[in-house]
Design a protein around this nucleic acid. Structure first.
Length: 444
RNA sequence: GGUCCCGUAGCCAAGUGGCUAAGGCAAUGGACUGCAACUCCGUGAUCACCGGUUCGAAUCCGGUCGGGACCUCCA
């Protein structure tokens, strides 16, 4: 298994800390709004990462947080004349709904900042004690200058950052690059701390949660490419101070989803919410997986439609195969794949092992579709079709695609038989009526 | 101003030093078919441009043009 590590800028062989186990943490959303389709990309991609590791036999401990204490949430609560918790709960629920819509599992540990406040505070306390952080008037800042390799993840040099730093409004900081760990505030919900009432900064929650949940270093830390700097860089800095290591062995980042070649922007009207997508969600999932995760993916109606059509084609072949086998009472028979099928499966897995090359994996899915369609046109191919169906199931499970096919009922079978007979007897009017019924039932 | 990424056929998209540059969509020719749909077979690119390194480059280096990201909350 090879994967690209942002920390080293290299594609490396994956070696878990504990054999057979993958501990991974993905930065989750700040819950102040519905997620847009760009937010869905990591939700889909890292779900596939987990699914593939599970396919490989690993036990995957998957954690992804919700940031439910944040200025945006407070702003939204004031706007809506309600409280922060209500806003957070509403959008967490909406997030789960959207994640399920795009085919991602929601069965994982999802810690919330409000639940980890004491862990976050004690993490900051330790940084202060170790002199890596300092308090000024109830605010706590991280002392970036004490981290010798600051910039290691994002490939930046402290000097360059200093040059780029704009006029610093917060004159309380020793250094413009220092970031906030805790801040005093008069607006919105606050929590008691050794430095007075206030709220945690954004960068500490993830490291504190990882420390609390996993008890130290994890295998994979992931998120969108936009998080590399400053968020993940700052996580690393804090953890270097806290535990003298980089928190995770592998850092994975997905590229952005763009519209008109630019990232989504609410203020410029370039945003599409997941809940508002007017297309099949499996088609959307296929669309996001059709480009390598580290490349940007450009969203257009045309491209999405293309993948919706592609998904329909895949689903059609799958369901036809399923029904043919069901009609022949062959679904519960076990058969072995022939060499061609084995090759398709092997290539699929090899593509996934090459830094999750889902585009190439999908090419194998298409090869499987072609293979199966060829078999469907030939006689006496039930064993091959049964084996192909199993490969389909494997691919779907890894990619998180669901063709939603069910076993035929007695009524379904009766209609199907009648249709076949009518065609045989050249009763075409009758056959067409029966075909309509089968189409309605989703069987043809 | 600083740092960095990208530019492959009409469209989507692999490939990052070496067989005739994967695959899909669209288009087009053919086959199958009671009709339609579906499906199957065939047909297309020298890789933005210029120069260099090399026996050999889409793949490495330099430059030009074009697009984008980050440096401030942002997946």
């Amino acid at each position: 298994m090879k994967l690209y590590n942002t920390l080293t800028n290299k594609t490396e062989t994956f070696k878990p800390i504990d054999k057979d186990t993958v501990n991974m943490y993905i930065c989750g959303p700040t819950v102040y709004n519905y997620i847009h389709i760009g937010n869905a990309r990591p939700v889909i991609f890292f779900d596939v990462v987990r699914r593939f590791f599970e396919y490989k036999g690993y036990t995957v401990n998957f954690v992804s947080n919700f940031t439910d204490v944040d200025d945006k949430i407070i702003t939204k609560a004031i706007e809506d004349e309600t409280d922060e918790m209500t806003i957070a709960n509403k959008f967490i629920e909406a997030f789960y709904k959207d994640a399920e819509r795009v085919g991602s599992s929601t069965k994982y540990l999802a810690p919330r900042v409000t639940e980890y406040m004491s862990s976050i505070i004690s993490y900051i306390e330790k940084l202060v004690e170790a002199d890596y952080a300092y308090e000024v008037d109830g605010n706590v800042f991280f002392r970036v200058a004490k981290i010798s390799d600051y910039g290691i993840l994002s490939g930046r040099k402290v000097d360059d950052l200093m040059e780029g730093a704009r006029v610093e409004v917060n004159t309380k900081k020793e250094n413009p690059l220092d970031f906030t760990l805790w801040k005093t505030t008069e607006v919105g919900v606050t929590y008691p701390s050794p430095w007075g009432e206030g709220r945690p900064g954004w960068h500490t929650e993830c490291v504190a949660m990882i420390q609390d949940i996993f008890g130290g270093k994890i295998d994979i830390h992931g998120g969108g490419i936009g998080l590399i700097f400053p968020h993940h860089e700052n996580e690393i800095a804090q953890n270097r101070a806290f535990a003298q290591h980089h928190i995770a062995n592998y850092w994975m980042h997905n590229g952005q989803l763009t519209i008109d070649d630019k990232k989504m922007s609410k203020s410029e009207g370039r945003v599409v919410l997941v809940k508002d997508l007017d297309y099949d969600y499996m088609g959307f999932r296929l669309f996001t997986l059709s480009t390598h995760y580290r490349s940007p993916v450009e969203y257009t109606d045309e491209t999405l439609k293309h993948h919706v059509t592609e998904w329909e084609k895949i689903k059609r072949t799958y369901s036809q195969t399923f029904y043919q086998l069901d009609l022949a009472d062959y679904l519960d028979t076990r058969t072995h794949p022939d060499n061609k099928l084995k090759q398709i499966l092997n290539r699929f897995v090899a593509a996934m092992e090459q830094d999750f090359n889902t585009p190439n994996a999908i090419t194998e899915l298409q090869n499987l579709v072609k293979y199966t369609n060829q078999k469907l046109r030939q006689r006496d191919t039930l064993p091959d079709l049964r084996a192909a169906l199993e490969v389909f199931d494997t691919f779907f499970k890894i990619l998180g695609l669901n063709p939603e096919v069910r076993r035929l009922t007695q009524t379904d079978r009766a209609i199907y038989m009648a249709w076949t007979d009518a065609r045989k007897n050249k009763e075409f009017d009758k056959a067409d009526r029966l075909r309509e019924k089968l189409l309605e039932r989703g069987i043809l």
